[in-house]
Amino acid sequence: MNSDVRQLREMLQAHDPARRVHPDASSLPVIAQRIIDETARPPRTAVRRWSARRWLVAVSVTAVVTGAALAVTVVMPPDDVGSMQMGATRALAFTEDGDYVDVRIMDPDADPRRYRQDFTARGLNVDLQMKAVSPSLAGKMISVSSPARLVTYGSDGGFEVRDTDEKNVRIEGIEDESGCGDMWCQAGVRIPVGLRLPITIVFGRPARPGERYEITGDPTARGEVLEGLTLRNRTVAEVEALLRQRHTTVETYYQAPPPPSPGSGGWDFSEHVIRSRDVPGTWYVHEAFGGHDRNTVSLVVDSRPR
């Protein structure tokens, strides 16, 4: 053993505050089983607890999703809001709430035809697309658009779609309390009853084994490869060390936009790729993007901190 190690151990071992700490052995099987029972793993990321934000009374029931045969915890709305109905194919759930109907995904892996059947059955012209996404975006709504129409995103999570007769139709997002880090996402969408405009909604679904992510989330968001880390204004060398610990590699380095321009608006990152050997370890990381392959990220860097 190295003499420094030996001397340090002699110096410090007696002061270990946890040297007498032992967990209660009888509780270990219970804790382990609870973790297994209560934690959704990647193949089951569709299992999600629904937001009770807008509902005053929450009663947990269990619904079985057709095909996937997953137990899903559903929060039932009280009677005065309207009853929740599963779509005919049980790929979607609709909750009527006055002039709006809330739509949520029940089975992100369902065949898209099943979604269309559910929407058509309710007289809605909605094209629901599912894209392979990184874990933090699975089961979340990540885009709303209307073919050949202007969609304005509001800061409150809602959207305005300009109809052909110049009237604005308002569609609202349903807030996702768990969030997606720096990315925008919603738990579902509230569509006006009787909407006839064609709407395209994109939800994220877990990528299948070997499948690349079409859309990537904030790599530090929950469930992602760098979950819980703060990268901004750490040096490149520090971040690369953190990445190695998480078995993650850098897909691309991008030059950060020059100050004082805020954010990345108007800055085309694809035109500012830097070769990795040209990025000194003393530079600073401004931002990280998820890579399209698993365990990869792209870093936005500059010689100065952000």
């Binding site: 270990d16 505050p17 946890a18 040297r19 700490v21 032992h22 804790i31 297994i36």
Partner: peptide
């Protein structure tokens, strides 16, 4: 496998946390 790993390493992780954030949060 996970349960086996949990039993094998839980005490080490608990102590690791205990040494850094104390008994309340460990």
């Amino acid at each position: 496998d996970f349960t086996r790993m949990f039993h094998e390493h839980y005490e080490s992780v608990l102590r690791y946390a205990w040494r850094r954030v104390g008994p309340d949060d460990a």
